[in-house]
Structure formats: C-alpha cells, structure tokens
Nucleic acid binder design. Structure first.
Length: 909
DNA sequence: AGTGTCTGCCCC
DNA sequence: ATTCTGC
DNA sequence: GCAGAATGGGCAGACACT
C-alpha cells in the first residue's frame, strides 16, 4: 500500500509529494483556492480554474502545473490525474498511481450538484483519503431545493417587513452558490466587496449570474446583502439598523446554530458532503483502506470500521464543529470549549449574563437530554468559583437556593408593570404582545427588542439585582428596580431575568438534568452530586463543591432536612400488587431470593408532609420541599422536646380535634398564618389543633436508618415513647391484592382518601418516586358538567383552547352555574379537536377567553368538593381533572347544583 | 379604615 | 396535587 | 421509567388604592 503520513497536510513519502499542506513546501497539490490551502509553495499542481483564482488571491511567482480534469500526467516523477470534486469552482481531487496501486485524495468535496461547481467524478482506488467535515449522522442535509426555497422565503419576508436580509457565506464558492440560488426569485443581491471581487473573477472564467450590485450603504433597502461570515457584528453591518441575518452553512443543521453564531436564521446549504454522501462515496470508490481527515474524522472512521472497512483518522481534531468553517476560520477564531462559540470580529464588549441566556436558548433548542447536559456542562466548566453557584441555581429556575429562605415577592403583575414602564409601550400594544404569547419571558423579549440600550450585565450584578429585589419593600419599589435594569438589558437577557423571576425556564431542563451536568462537568459521580444536593438543598453550593472535589463534605445530619421519599400513584389494588410481583420476580431472577410476600399498608393522610428533627436541645420541622415550618407549629415543637431520643422522623401533620381527624380544609386555615411566638397557644394553634402522625424513622441516636429495611425502621419506631400530639401510623400487613382491596374498602368507610402501600424490605430513598411505595386512591364520585367558556393555554399550549370553565345546572332556576376549571386529563389530540369545536361554537370572543355554546359535556373527577366564593355555584373542586369527554350526553343530562351540594355535605365539608 | 389585588420555590 | 409527552 | 411542562383551588399576608 502507498505509504501515507499526516503532518499539517497529507504527505506521501515514497513520492515526496504533499497534498494540501498548510505550510509552504517545495512540491504540492492544491485542491482548491480557499485561502488556507494556498501557501507559497515552490511548485504546485492545480486545476486550471484553481490556478486562475490562486493568482488573484496569492500574488507572487511559483511553478504551476495547471492540469485539465481526467488526464493522466507524470510530473516530477509522480503519476497522477485530477478529477472534479464539486466543492467549489475549480476544486479537484487527486488520483495518484504507484504501480498497481492507486490512492484517491478527495480534498474538499460534495456529491450533490451545485450551480457554480463542476460535477464531481470518481474512480476506484485502493486507498481513499477523504475529508469528513460532516462525518456524524446528525449532519444530513435536506434537499437543496427545499433549503433554497426557505432561504428565498426568509429574504422575501424580511424585505416585506422593511428590514434588510443579510446572508452570510464564504466569499469564494458559497457566495456564488447563494447568488445562483436567488436567481429567478425577483430579488436584487448586493455583494460585500470581497464577494464582489471573487464573483467578477468567476465571470471572467465564463460563469454567468443574475443581476447584482456592489455594496452601497445608502441603498440597502429592498436588497439582499451577501457577506462573508466575518462581516457578522462588523461595523459595516452594525450601521444597518433593521436587518435579519442568516448563516448559510452545513452547520445550520445543529439545532442551536442560531444561538451559537448569533444570527436570526440558519440554512443548511453546504459545499461539503453530508454524512450520507460520505458513506455513499466510500461505496462508489470501493477502497481497501480509508483514511479520514477534518471534522469528525475519528468518529467517521469508527463508523466505517463498524461496517467492516479498514478505516482510520489521520487527525484527531474532533472539535472542528466549534470552529466555524474549519480551517479558513480557525486561524482567526478564538479557541473555545464553550457552547457560545462566536464568529470572529465580534464586538468587544461581552455580557456574561447574555452568555448565560444564550446557553439557555441552546439548551431549549435541542430536545435531546444528553445534548442539553453536554451544553450545560461545557458552560459550567468555564465559570469562576464565584459565578458557578449563582448560575447553577439560575438553571433550576430560581434566584436563590432552595434552602435559602429569601423570597422575591415578584410575580406577573410586577414584571409586566416594569416592562411596560421600561419600554413606554402603550397598553394596547403591550397587551397584544402579552396576549399573543401567554408567556412572560417571550413577551419580555418582544417588547424589549429595540427599546433598550443594552450594556454588559455580569453574573455578579445579576445576583445583586435579585438580592435588591428581595430587599425592596412593596410592589412599586420592586417594579421600579426591575424597570431600571430592563432598560439596560438586551431583550434576551430581559427574557431570562423574567424566566428566573417566574421560576419557569421552559427550556426542558430542571434540577435533575442540572445535577447530571454538574456530574459531567467536574467528573464526579452522579450519585454523589444528588446526595450532596439533597443534603444541602443548594444546587449552587453542590456545583461548587463538585468543582473542588469536596462533595463528601456534605453529610446527613440532624437539623438539616433531606428530601422525602415519594409514592407512585396506582388506580387499583390489583395494579399495586402486580407492581410488587414484577419487582419481586426480577429480584428473584437475579439473586435467587424469595418474594417477600407481605407488604405494609397504611392510611394515606390528608395533611402536610413533614419531617421532624429532634436533637438534644432543639427541634425543627420541615415541609416536603425542605422549607422550615418550625414556627408554624409551636405546640408540636414544645411537645417534641419530650422525646427521649435524638431522631429524624417522617410523617404527616393533620388537623385533629377531640379524637377526630379533621379535613385538609380545616388545616389550611392556619397554614399561612404568621405565629406570634409570644402567644404560643392563644391564636392559630388553639383554633385548629394538629397532631403529627409519624410513619417512618430515618435517624436515631447518631445512626442513619436510610439503608435499614422499612420492617426494621418500623420496629424501632414501635419502641418509641410518644409525647402527646404525636401519633404512630398503623400498619396492616397484606399478602394479596384481595387483602389490599379489603383494607381499602374499610378505609373508604372511614372516609379516608386512600392507602399507602410499601415494600417492607425497602430502604428509604430520599427524593425518588420509585417502585417501593405506592398510593392507592379512587374518586368518591365524578360530576358530569358542561363547558361554558374556553381559554388559550400557555407555553406550548398558547395556540389551543386548553383551559375549560365548566358548570352544573341549578334545578330551581335552570341556570348554568360555573363550578370549576380544568385542563388536566385530555390528550393533545383531544385538545386540538375541542379547540376546533369551540372556535366554531363561540358566543363571545374576548381574545384569550371566549364564552362558548354549552354543548360539550365532560366527566370530571376531583379530590374533594367544598364551599367557595370563586365560582357562581358557591362550590369549588379540589384537584379537578377531566376523566372523559361524554359525547353521548348533552347539556340536558348534566349533574345539578343540588347533587353537587349533597356530595359536599356527604364528604364532610 | 375598609376594600381590592397580588403573591406564595403556598399547600395539596 | 394530576396528567400527558418525548426520550 | 423518568423528567419535564402545563394545568387546578384556597388560604393568609402584604401592600395599594380610595
């Protein structure tokens, strides 16, 4: 086989011949005239057209051998032939003959036909040396015509909006391809100077184009600007106020290309072969050996080996997709490992918060979880120790850590007010924008766009902003602070400030994926990260510890809350039992151990999940989301001091008086109430007495019980002496689905909402909703109701009527009285159908909200029903959800107000 | 002072 | 809380 | 199976408005 080496260019030592070397050599083949290829070699082999282009781009003297395509020649003892490569005008492949052996070097090439490059040709060769810029399966380009149509549509729309379309493509090759693509679309291209110059040379070489103009800054209106990518963010373009920029490149298929390259649109028109064409080319050439270079060389070689070919990468530069346009740009492009790689010549000032927002956009743009994690971890890795905890917290949609007691007291009203004042937009326009999106973040982006004077916003400044918002008293002061900031933020930054304020990032990434990104970024185990985050309740601090490899310093300790174990809902005793059988079956297969046969059944309590920490001299109570609620239950704290042991107990606080369980409704009355510690037993505590029902023991006398089976935990719990106002949850063992069902029926008779069913051998798994605890609930009753109004949803449901107000009939007057609203329970398809129906059955249209003909009957389920002033019926449902669309019923057969009242009375409310 | 509006990692 | 959806 | 998004009602508290 012909020997091949690689050293900043392909080298054939037996022939002493270089192929596309970066540095000046005595004798080399130059495949095409891109500037990175045309070093001042002494003697070159080129195609005739490349020779012409090269003379313009690299003046000076050298020995040239301009060869026609398809003719075999011998030059300086090298036996070779050039073939068209289809990459750009004049681009060539080089076929080298050595005895019986041949080697085909592709240079840059593509197979799909272009309008300004020759048709590619190929020959069989034993060795194929090929470029693999797009050697990954995700780079499959759509049909060229489709891309061109999109590109033309982009230009037309932009001009219609009286803005200037700017298309970015290399001045040699890509720009001319774009020019050809625009032919016949009725558009007038205007060429950047460097593009103009090259295009003229093309014309001298016999290529013809549609009519075009040279760039003239006073005449851009209605034209399509074609510029090299380096012009993005350049002073020239900055002078054009209203423009939309599109990148024309194979990298456009990356879902986050728009954010990475800071453009408004991106179209995948490439002069390189895509993944499928790379594979196809290998099949056409039928080589015995393949050597890959550029782009994803290693990955592509590995794919070929998986197909049984002898294939190896000549370089290991696998990061090329980060350097836009590879070699041509690589020299000018800053090296970067971040997801925010930018085109060269970016404006000098950089905003850290904009980086953060752009990473968020990139994460939101890809649906793939692993890609999200990769983007985030790359970004986190590049942050300072000061920034890291702040930004990690932002990515969970919070301004402050979970365990941080600070709250912002900033909601929609304050945000909208601040936006409106910052932009001085009139009410009607503002509400039109807000109404169109149903998403505060998007509204912020839209209204801020072009109405602010952005300047850089650092991560630390953003932390100060949130701190100040927290400190400010009153919605007016908060709105004022926000307004000041909005007016100096870019729209994207404003959008992300709003996203954090509303706690809704909506980029398909929440705490779980942030944990994974931290694990990946700092090369620590995911378990350790989760463990530390659970213990600290602070993802930012967790990230910082991870970066310092200090995660082990977080430990389970008394007086620091841990996440609680959750139960998976199941609709029937059979379903629950089957789950246990499945789990036991799997376990038996693996370990040979026997099925436990017995599960623990407890009442499900309708109160507040709570965690009691009792140390030698203090007591704390935490809610299920780790908030400290000690102050709300002073009498429980007082009683808890009587425990003999130090312990952490898991349980439920329920309203309880005179030996009788009260409802959640009763408990709620004292929940938000502020307690006056000087008057412990006077107010709220006396009003609504509570008890703490303990059902699990997590820690006792210095020992963690998390990895002790439930059976043993319950045994220990059984030995505790309980102070007044502390109860122990009863456990009933069950050995079959029928037994569970029996216990469930009993619970029902006691008007209990359901059961908890637990694997007696399971460990306590904080924060997980696993296959060890289940909850069994069933509706007491359902109501048949009729929809009287429909509203547009939010986020991705912004265009559908997904939110329904429904009514029952008052028998005495015949009136339809609203009793609740629901969205939950319908599939997207059903929502789409109902949207269509309601649009055609609208009585009055108030924009986002419309009253509709009462002709759709829903069966709704609910957790409880109680008196309320919210709806005209005087009743309200807790956790309403749609069970079914009752197409078999009409408005005459819905349930009555009288029946609903009966249900409310029967359930004790 | 009385009423109305908004908010809450609200609680479920 | 609940439910559906995409991975 | 998991994680995420998009939805429900109700209370007390804090402030704004009149």
């Amino acid at each position: 086989m012909i020997e091949v080496r690689y050293e900043r260019g392909v080298y054939l030592p037996q022939q002493d011949f270089w192929l596309d070397p970066w540095d000046a050599k005595s004798f080399a083949f130059v495949s095409h005239a891109h500037s990175d290829h045309i070093a001042p070699h002494q003697e070159v082999i080129v195609s005739e057209r490349t020779a012409r282009l090269m003379r313009v781009r690299l003046p000076g003297s050298r020995i040239e051998h301009p060869l026609p395509f398809g003719e075999r020649r011998s030059i300086r003892g090298v036996d070779l032939m050039l073939l068209p490569a289809g990459h750009i005008f004049g681009s060539a492949q080089c076929l080298v003959f050595a005895g019986q052996e041949t080697l085909l070097y592709t240079g840059d090439f593509k197979l799909r036909p272009g309008k300004s490059a020759e048709e590619p040709e190929w020959r069989h060769a034993e060795t194929l040396v090929m470029e693999t810029t797009f050697g990954r399966p995700r780079y499959r380009f759509p049909p060229t015509k489709e891309v061109i149509d999109q590109m033309v549509a982009f230009c037309v729309e932009t001009i219609d909006a009286t803005e200037v379309p700017v298309l970015l493509g290399y001045s040699l090759g890509k720009a001319q391809e774009i020019l050809c693509a625009l032919e016949g679309a009725g558009l007038t291209p205007m060429l950047h100077g460097s593009v103009y110059q090259i295009t003229r040379i093309y014309e001298q070489l016999g290529q013809s184009f549609c009519k075009y103009m040279r760039y003239n800054r006073n005449d851009v209106a209605g034209k399509v600007l074609i510029c090299p990518p380096s012009a993005n963010r350049s002073p020239m373009l900055e002078k054009i106020p209203r423009k939309r920029i599109a990148l024309i490149s194979g990298w456009a298929v990356d879902p986050h290309a728009v954010y990475r390259y800071q453009v408004d649109a991106a179209f995948p028109l490439s002069d390189h072969a895509d993944y499928d064409d790379l594979l196809r080319y290998v099949e056409l050439v039928q080589p015995r050996r393949v050597l890959t270079l550029h782009g994803f060389a290693a990955a592509f070689a590995s794919d070929l080996r998986a197909r049984g070919l002898d294939a190896w990468a000549l370089t290991e530069e696998n990061q090329m997709e980060l350097h836009f346009g590879r070699r041509e740009m690589a020299r000018k492009c800053l090296p970067t490992n971040s997801a925010t790689a930018r085109l060269p010549n970016e404006s000098a000032q950089q905003s850290e918060f904009l980086d953060f927002a752009n990473v968020g956009e990139a994460i939101g743009a890809t649906p793939a979880k692993l890609e999200k994690i990769r983007l985030l971890s790359d970004y986190l890795r590049g942050l300072t120790g000061e920034q890291l905890p702040i930004v990690a917290t932002y990515f969970t949609g919070r301004a402050f850590a979970q365990s941080d007691p600070r709250i912002l007291q900033v909601g929609w009203a304050v945000i909208f007010r601040a936006l409106q004042e910052a932009t001085r937009i009139g009410d009607s326009e503002f509400h039109r924008s807000a109404g169109r999106h149903g998403d505060a973040g998007k509204t912020a982006f839209e209204v801020l766009d072009g109405r602010t004077a952005p300047h850089p916003f650092s991560v630390m400044e953003s932390a100060e902003l949130f701190q100040n918002l927290h400190r400010a008293r009153g919605s007016i002061a908060k709105a004022q602070l926000l307004r000041q900031r909005f007016s100096v933020l870019s729209p994207r930054e404003g959008q992300y400030v709003v996203k954090i304020l509303t706690g809704d990032l909506r980029i398909g990434l929440r705490e779980g994926l942030v944990e994974e990104a931290i694990s990946k970024a700092f090369d620590v185990s995911l378990d350790e990260v989760k463990q530390a985050n659970m213990l600290l309740g602070d993802i930012g601090r967790t990230a910082l510890l991870a970066s310092q490899k200090e995660l082990h310093s977080a430990e389970l300790s008394l007086l620091r809350p841990i996440k609680c174990m959750l139960a998976t809902p199941e609709p029937s005793a059979d379903a629950v039992w089957n789950r246990f059988m499945e789990a036991a079956g799997i376990e038996r297969d693996q370990s040979g151990s026997s099925i436990p046969g017995t599960v623990y059944v407890e009442d499900k309590f309708d109160g507040i999940r709570a965690q009691l920490h009792r140390s030698r001299d203090s007591v704390e109570i935490f809610s299920r989301d780790l908030r400290r609620i000690t102050g709300q239950f002073p009498e429980l704290v007082e009683q808890a001091r009587r425990f003999d042991q130090e312990l952490i107990a898991d349980g439920e606080i329920i309203a309880f008086d005179k030996g009788r369980r009260l409802t959640f409704f009763d408990l709620q009355k004292r929940l938000g109430r502020k307690d006056d510690t000087s008057d412990l037993f006077a107010g709220a505590a006396a009003d609504v007495p509570v008890v703490f029902v303990i059902f699990d023991l997590l820690w006792m006398n210095g020992r963690s019980l998390l990895k002790t089976p439930l059976r043993e935990r319950r045994e220990q719990l059984g030995t505790l002496v309980l102070p007044p106002q502390f109860h122990r949850a009863n456990v009933t063992p069950a050995r079959s689905a029928a037994e569970i069902e029996q216990i469930f029926q009993d619970a029902r008779r006691r008007l209990n909402e359901g059961l908890m069913i637990k694997d007696s051998e399971s460990f306590y798994l904080p924060g997980t909703r696993g296959m060890f605890w289940f909850k069994l609930k069933r509706e007491l009753a359902t109501l048949d109701v009729v929809v009287v109004a429909a509203e547009l949803g939010h986020g991705k449901r912004n265009d559908v009527l997904s939110d329904y107000t429904f009514a029952v009939r008052d028998e005495t007057t015949g009136e339809l009285l609203p009793i609740g609203k629901a969205y939950s329970g319908l599939t997207d398809v059903e929502i789409a159908e109902l949207t269509e129906h309601f649009k055609q059955n609208t009585i009055t249209d108030h924009g986002r909200y419309r009253r509709v003909q009462p002709n759709v009957v829903l069966e709704v389920a609910f957790n409880s029903i109680q008196p309320s002033t919210r709806h005209a019926s005087g009743l309200a449902l807790r956790f309403p959800r749609i069970k079914a669309i009752r197409r078999d019923k009409n408005v005459d057969s819905i349930d009555t107000l009288q029946y609903a009242r009966e249900l409310a009375i029967r359930s004790g409310n």
